[in-house]
């Protein structure tokens, strides 16, 4: 069974509608560790050694965050800057994360259609996520298609429940390696792989 580490970054969880529900859905899962970064490091003073140790103890890393300015909230970026350091995560001798898998889980206000060449945001989610993808790549990790919640400001409670349920399913699938490799490579979103 794969061990999953959810690196969760949300600076105002008390105001969140979606991410709170998503987290609720997965936090009790066996072999899933929730690492609530804003709760753990309110002063941004990240304990690098501890965080690296945590990474070593898991096989799959989830970057779970709202999509702020087409990217992650500041603390997750700080985490990347400090934890994924040269000589440890990447570089000639930095191979500690080699072979692990990364999944981005994001929530965004825009609907799917605004994330297209013709849409308001002009680029697709995958295009915006390139820095994350390449970061994983540089650390010799596999980067999966993202799990995305679109239309965060307008979706109904039922839809949120559905997303939460799917998130749980996604992690359960990843945990037991029950993902079809071929479909995985073709899929645009991880959401598409869930029945």
């Amino acid at each position: 069974m794969n061990r999953i580490l959810v690196e969760f970054a949300h600076p105002a969880i008390q105001k969140s509608r979606i991410n709170r529900r998503l987290i609720q859905a997965v936090k009790e899962l066996e072999n899933v560790t929730l690492n609530d970064l804003y709760e753990k490091y309110p002063d941004f003073f990240i304990d690098v050694k501890k965080e690296q140790q945590l990474l070593l103890e898991h096989d799959i890393i989830v970057w779970h965050h709202p999509f702020y300015w087409y990217s992650a909230p500041a603390l997750l970026k700080e985490w990347m800057d400090l934890v994924l350091v040269h000589g440890w995560a990447y570089g000639e001798h930095g191979r500690m994360l080699e072979g692990k898998t990364v999944l981005s889980v994001i929530s965004t206000g825009g609907r799917l259609e605004v994330y297209s060449k013709e849409g308001r945001n002009r680029f697709s989610i995958q295009e915006f996520l390139v820095p994350f993808k390449q970061s994983a790549n540089l650390c010799r990790m596999e980067y999966l298609p993202p799990f995305v919640v679109h239309g965060a400001h307008t979706i109904s409670d039922n839809e949120i429940s559905e997303y939460a349920e799917n998130y749980k399913k996604a992690l359960t699938m990843l945990r037991s390696d029950a993902v079809d490799r071929d479909r995985l490579m073709k899929a645009a979103y991880f959401n598409d792989l869930i029945e």
């Binding site: 690098v48 800057d81 400090l82 350091v85 040269h86 570089g91 000639e92």
Partner: peptide, 12 residues
């Protein structure tokens, strides 16, 4: 504090 230390990158 080793954060944002670029020494090893420069060496490489």
């Amino acid at each position: 504090d080793c954060a944002w230390d670029v020494e090893s990158i420069r060496e490489e």
